[in-house]
């Protein structure tokens, strides 16, 4: 084999242009929309589109946090349990403090209930992220296993403090989840889009974002290159926790009550959205735009099945097929084995 030949051989996988992940997702989304519209034209109504966005906003906010973490090569599968726990805490604060009758001794606390709940949600969210991050770093064990453990712990704590009961907001905290700007666009959507844009800016334009890719690309090389890898990882977990705090606020505000299991489905749904969005489990690849599209796709499936009057229990099966198909296609087209 001469030099030229080795060069050609080396180049061939690179020249084989992979299908752009964004394009693949958009094609899937359009395809799904067309089918849904053909079956039921109501699908394409503005109100339904807005509805879809509102439905996915909590998932989207969670997915952005976990997505950025996954870009750095670490994972957090305790996010669902974190959201549940935060939901319980903030609902308890609102029910207990906000529900004090006007004549009682502590009645002055009533107006502080919602601000306190918001502060608690962010503060404790950040704390949970910090704990996850510290243990992942100190233990040296794969983050999947550590956060699996924490997932059970957080769920346990949520059950313990709630006693398995549900806590009601009684309409004291509705704006975030149910409010609409100009009476049309739900407030939650602005937060969702805002978080997506923020994630995009972080990943694309900040040094911190670049370090996330570097860690995911090669953690050892990142360390040799002078990146404080532990600090980067820790921050990523705290960001996940903060975004979970926001997600819990929106979710509980929309639902109007909290249970110890309210957030549970979000762990796997967020992971599904991120993976469909082209972030690989080992990290080093992915973008906020694609995570956004992944979230949208997952949300669309649920909505479309309802609109098409198909058995909603099919959702899991369809999402499963989409995950496998999307990852297989993008894997095959990038020429990787």
């Amino acid at each position: 084999m001469n030099d030229k030949m080795t060069n050609i051989l080396k180049k061939s996988p690179g020249n084989k242009k992979g299908i752009n992940q964004s394009l693949l997702l958009i094609i899937l989304i359009v395809f799904l929309c067309i089918i849904a519209t053909v079956v039921n034209p109501r699908f394409m109504r503005i109100s339904n589109i807005i509805n879809i966005f509102q439905q996915v906003s909590v998932l989207g906010i969670i997915a952005c946090g976990v997505g950025m973490l996954l870009v750095s090569g670490d994972i957090d599968i305790s996010v669902g349990a974190q959201v549940s726990l935060l939901g319980i805490i903030l609902a308890m604060i609102i029910e207990k403090l906000g529900g004090i009758a006007p004549g009682e001794a502590n009645a002055w606390m009533v107006p502080y209930a919602v601000p306190l709940a918001i502060a608690a949600s962010f503060g404790i969210g950040a704390l949970l992220g910090l704990i996850n991050g510290i243990i992942v770093i100190k233990s040296g064990v794969t983050s999947f296993i550590i956060t699996l453990g924490f997932s059970t712990i957080y769920k346990g704590v949520a059950l313990l403090i709630s006693g398995g009961a549900s806590y009601m907001l009684f309409g004291r905290f509705e704006t975030l989840g149910r409010g609409r700007v100009f009476g049309v666009i739900p407030v939650a959507i602005f937060f969702f889009i805002g978080v997506v844009i923020l994630s995009h800016v972080i990943l694309k334009y900040t040094r911190y974002g670049r370090f996330l890719y570097a860690l995911g690309g090669n953690k050892k090389a990142a360390f040799v290159s002078g990146i404080n890898t532990k600090r980067v990882t820790l921050k990523a977990y705290v960001i996940v926790g903060l975004l979970n705090g926001l997600a819990a606020l929106i979710l509980i505000s929309r639902v109007g009550s909290a249970l110890a299991t309210t957030g549970e489905p979000y762990s796997l749904d967020a992971l599904a959205a991120i993976i469909v969005g082209g972030v690989i489990l080992t990290g080093g690849k992915g973008s906020a735009l694609n995570i956004f599209l992944g979230v949208l796709l997952i949300g669309l499936v649920g909505n479309a099945l309802v609109i098409m009057n198909v058995n909603p229990y099919l959702r899991g099966i369809v999402i499963g097929i989409i995950i496998i198909a999307a990852v297989t296609i993008s894997n095959a087209s990038s020429g990787k084995k």
């Binding site: 670049r210 370090f211 690309g217 090669n218 040799v224 990146i227 080093g284």
Partner: peptide, 19 residues
């Protein structure tokens, strides 16, 4: 421990400076 293989050349070059 030298390269980010799945990242572009320019990112590999600039990372140390950014630290």
């Amino acid at each position: 421990d030298g390269l980010f293989l799945i990242r572009p050349i320019f990112e590999n070059i600039s990372t140390v400076l950014f630290t």
